[in-house]
Design a protein around this nucleic acid. Sequence first.
DNA 1: ATTATCTTTTATAAAAAATTAAAAAGTTTA
DNA 2: TAAACTTTTTAATTTTTTATAAAAGATAAT
Lengths: 396, 396
Amino acid sequence: MSIIVEKSQRLKADIIKYLYYKKVLSLTDLSKLTHKSLPLVTSVVNSLIADGYVMEQGLAPSTGGRRPLMFLINPDLKKYIIAIAMDQLTTRLTIYNLSHKMIMPVQLLEFVMTAETSNAGDLVAFINDCIVKSGVKKEAILGVGIGMPGFVNADEGVNHTYLKVGDGLTIQQYLQNGIELPVYIDNDSSLIALAELNFGEAQNMTDVLIVNIGWGTGLGMILNGKLYRGSGGNAGEFSHIPLSESNNLCSCGKRGCIQLDTSLLVMTQKAEQAVAHGIESSLKKLFADKTKHASDHFLEAVSQQDPAAVSILAKAAFQMGKGLATLIHILNPECIVLSGRGAKAGRMLLPPIQQAINEFCIARIAEQTEIKVSTLTDGAELLAAASLMMEHLQMD
Amino acid sequence: MSIIVEKSQRLKADIIKYLYYKKVLSLTDLSKLTHKSLPLVTSVVNSLIADGYVMEQGLAPSTGGRRPLMFLINPDLKKYIIAIAMDQLTTRLTIYNLSHKMIMPVQLLEFVMTAETSNAGDLVAFINDCIVKSGVKKEAILGVGIGMPGFVNADEGVNHTYLKVGDGLTIQQYLQNGIELPVYIDNDSSLIALAELNFGEAQNMTDVLIVNIGWGTGLGMILNGKLYRGSGGNAGEFSHIPLSESNNLCSCGKRGCIQLDTSLLVMTQKAEQAVAHGIESSLKKLFADKTKHASDHFLEAVSQQDPAAVSILAKAAFQMGKGLATLIHILNPECIVLSGRGAKAGRMLLPPIQQAINEFCIARIAEQTEIKVSTLTDGAELLAAASLMMEHLQMD
DNA sequence: ATTATCTTTTATAAAAAATTAAAAAGTTTA
DNA sequence: TAAACTTTTTAATTTTTTATAAAAGATAAT
């Protein structure tokens, strides 16, 4: 009998997931999305209404026939998701309800991944602290979604680069034990791709590349309509493809990696060198302010159209465009979305990237892919982490 | 009512397709492959036996439980597939039954795609001639599968590079009208990928890249277990990624395309130049024989380990390896298969490719992908063309 | 302008089909 | 000879189809 329940619970979870993503849907919409028949969907939605998960919203305008009754997730539902977005230096956490509402301001933890002293225990303590501070009961929390840099195998729950824990435990298991809630982890770039697919520029597309411009240059891929992770979960390592003309040594131990030209870190370093060499620029003043990270100042200068900063950015963007030209030939996507922290500079990034693509792509191929800049705000990573949790939602 | 029929006919076609690929299967196997329940599969297989399509083979050895009854396609079934493999110079045709048996020797047509005088009408005449010659009745032919070079959109039935026909018709429609049978076309590299997936080195894998070493260097991709074609059907244009150090002009109008270093045509040209410059090599004698194409002589010299030929090949292979290093970073496949005409030289190709991958890939990523040489013989393209037809099989 | 008819879309109830669960029938292994 | 496993068959349950009704807008006739 438990298996019967399990299967109908699967459909319940799917319906909640779709209502979470799309916010308001009719029974017909849900039937199409879940590939289940209308009578079945109707009965499951009715049971979800009885359980308090779902509400009727009222009739939508007609599209030429009978007006459909629309449904949405009960905005007063007391169920929550913990969303965590990590980067090399900082970890951000917030708690959402199922109506995309933050019920707690974003909490920050200075957690330096690369540091020897960094300990996964600190992360557990931080998360538990936040739960206590929020006043939300643990039973009301559906789970924890975490996006992090590194070679992450989402299925196995392992990060091969950072956050290693002993005792034969995966970081996922370690966190799960520590906070006693379901925990799901994934690579930050894959998650941003998920966010663009569900909420951003990649909606309703089946073949899209999402470039995560940040400390490195990550890549998330939606292929045949779903996130592609590769055989070992390590697809999308755009940062280290051999394309750079500089002969510098990359952190990975190789030479010629593209990120030696394109990463935000390298751009910022070049800007700092330029300032040190006495270039005339607003960067000089900005870099003096140590309250924010230099890369934030660099992005700020770019959006202020500081010539020195824009010139550094344009060179990097051209190289990135050359790399993207390769991807366009291989994957023939309908769209490439520039996303992540660096997308702030998107408007400045676009012309040199487009130029490189025109120069290195066969016209027939290039004209099939549109280059877009993400419109998701800073919250993209957190939203994506919440999505990750919703992807794994289970009803009990 | 016709829709009821249509759905059960879909399952019938799927079952025949799987029996075609795997040759012998039990009901349980078929149930798993088709994702349909055992009782349903049982009843459909019984109806296929009644129709004469399928036969019982007998009991297979036990795997620890009750011995399964195995089924296969009736080897005396009078249903046939026309398989056509085209390259720039030559078109090959054969007719298979559903037990992979050629019921007619391979027929050749000198059809030069690039020539102005080439006319799709000649192709129609050739196919119709072959049908007459074979003595097979048209009603017994399930359809025609054709693999061809160029920018092919398989869904739309268009080749944007070659075989253009007027009157607003696609080449697929033109051929279909001319021979009055269902016709399916696809890019040669995609088809070779399909052949490797179903019959060759990529069996039971979900993320594999198949390199078609031929006139150009094509790429077929199996991602998430299925052939990836890209948004416009033009994925896999490996030939023209910007990676060459030579500054020669490519046929596509750009400079720096990888195929300027790696295509069989370029290798052969280099060998001819070397001979012209008086290099000591068995190639000199071989090239004098004009009955075969120079590239065949070149491949022959390579397999005879002629030093000059091997040296030219090794340089090309290293460049190809550098390109593959990029793909490995992006797609993290479990395997790369070297296939197509040039795979004959596979054993010679492997070391320089592996060396380039080791030099340009992060070790963690590189060690996850195995490089293999195809074991499919010359018939790969024809087998693949037959597969293409079977993918579209419809029961009526 | 009002009414009637037609088309399109959503909702529900009865009939048909497919899946799942359970039982039965063979095989191998301990 | 029982226990573990796998395939096959049967019975029960679930799910999908199909048919029908109801609602809304568009078009045409009165």
